[in-house]
Design a protein around this nucleic acid. Structure first.
Lengths: 121, 121
DNA sequence: GCAGTCAGTTTCCCACAGGAAACCAGGTTC
DNA sequence: GAACCTGGTTTCCTGTGGGAAACTGACTGC
């Protein structure tokens, strides 16, 4: 038994609030539908509830409703009730929501290289 | 009832395999401990099982063992049994594991601006 | 008045993620 | 031989994520 100290204790790069910020980002994109919803709205522009249902294959009304509420609370999606007959609701990414596109694209790129690393090689 | 078509059907930006690549990245970083483990190993270098336990506050042996196996299977972490007495095991990020640092840093940055957007403003 | 549309909410259910604690095996120290 | 170290595995339990289906309610068209 030489030393009791952990090999490294450089807390400067594990500052909790810095880790929290990254965790926030993950939390927002975690779950079965978030990524797909954001990318759908990213290229679909403003869409109605039922249009999103038809585009995102397999999602049910409950999850769609809940996920859209989550995104709205996080100011990533704007919900607008349209004065049409019958009443329709428009969902679209906010400018802040659009800033996610960049990071999602980075994830795409890393995901591709990861596939090559794990499968190919 | 004017038209039956969804507002937008530009499938070119929803290509499934592109979405899958991003989902892979999220999957690898999802869960309660993955981010913390990777950042811990990122700045801690090679660490022993018990050192990681002491550094990552709150994690138990079962989760640590399982998460490290996950990371190893994904070629992000290298596990080395050391010929010491008693036998110790060294865990460290692979070069491929280190490529995650860039994207995690992007997540930190986005997370910070997100906090400002949601709280401050 | 009956069927169909849009936009959800509610209920009930199941599977899986994660935690606590016990257990295991090999080795060291006293 | 008792206690403690390393590095785990196994079992049992609970909470949450997510799905299916039924229901609501305002409106339209036939």
């Amino acid at each position: 038994m030489k030393k009791k100290e952990p090999i490294v204790l450089d807390r400067s790069c594990t500052k909790d609030d810095e880790l929290l910020a990254a965790k926030d980002t993950i939390a927002i994109l975690s779950g079965k539908w978030k990524l797909q919803l954001i990318t759908t709205l990213s290229c679909g522009g403003a869409m109605q509830f039922m249009d999103i249902m038809r585009t995102v294959d397999g999602i049910g009304t409950k999850m769609l409703s809940k996920e859209l509420q989550d995104l709205e609370i996080n100011l990533l999606v704007k919900r607008t009730v349209m004065e049409t007959r019958p009443v329709t609701v428009k969902y679209e990414l906010t400018p802040h929501g659009h800033t996610l596109e960049r990071i999602i694209n980075e994830m795409r790129i890393w995901g591709r290289t990861h596939r090559k690393e794990v499968l190919g090689k």
